[in-house]
Amino acid sequence: MDRVTAILKDPLLLAALAVLALLGLGELLSPGFARGDQIVRLLTVAAILGIVAAGQNLVILGGREGIDLSVGAVISLGAVIAGNVMSGDDAMILPALLAAGGVGFLVGIVNGLGVTVVRIPPLVMTLGMMGVVQGALVVLSRGVPSGNAAPALMAFVNQPLVAGIPGILFVWAAIAVLMAFVLRRTLFGWSVYAIGANERAAVLTGLPAGRIRTILYGLSGLFAGITGVCVIGYTGNSFISVGDQYVLPSVIAVVIGGTSLAGGSGSYTGTILGAIALVLLQSVLTTLQMEFWSRQVIFGATLLLLMLLYGRQARLRV
């Protein structure tokens, strides 16, 4: 019994079990759901969510109620910038990636400075930034969809590159390795956990908490910008609210993956499983061929159920 409780207390294992259970359920409901090419398609969708969730994960790990609500607007901005830089030209993919990622990084740095220097609560700062970036999008695009993806980028995201696996999954795998390495094997990574778990202690040991946290917000913007490029690669074109749908799911993926919203504990491996579980859940609900409203209700209820398993706050004690 103790073993069972121990397993249920480990969020990584729990998320992995949720992924397997959803996969099994999908296969049961619709044979062929768990076929190789289907899984690759699901993972492609999960990769887009997973890349933006990487930034969200960093910001949340850094503590002090870290959260980035501006990622949706930055994804849209990245997609519009990338689309206009590329304009369907394969040679411009790299400049597009640099431009989208660079602008995202700058937006994130401004968020970080607002949070650390002006000490605006992250929720408020990134909410305000969301409004500013949305306004900038209207100016940039003048309200009409513009720009389109280069064919090679679309192939990279949607078509198999090696062994039936599209390029975007290799990118996601590289990001996963990089995140694990940075968080667990570098001074910067350990500093992130340190300021997230106990900022005062971290500052007293000489860590520049403000600078580290600013960089985390910058990285979140960078990942969101890159996600924008992936989104336009996935769909071919963009509109100015294309990123909105990723904001809260990116937070949920992090939480389902076992990272505490209080900061200081969690891992990107968990977030990867969280993103896959979220996408699988939506896919299973689609397979059920239910009406949209019942899918919504079950989706919300499942999130609550997952909260019950490991999202609970400590009991107050006398």
């Binding site: 959260i67 809260l248 937070v251 949920i252 939480v255 919203l261 009406e291 949209f292 409203w293 019942s294 899918r295 919504q296 209700v297 989706f299 919300g300 209820a301 999130l303 609550l304 909260m307 019950l308 999202g311 609970r312 706050q313 400590a314 009991r315």
Partner: peptide, 26 residues
């Protein structure tokens, strides 16, 4: 859900919001 079951309020009210809007569509 938030106060008695002690769920995290941001994530929880996002989830209940999804349920409420699903019911509205029903």
């Amino acid at each position: 859900v938030v106060a008695v079951l002690r769920f995290q309020p941001i994530v929880t009210t996002f989830a209940t919001g999804i349920v409420f809007s699903g019911l509205a569509l029903r």
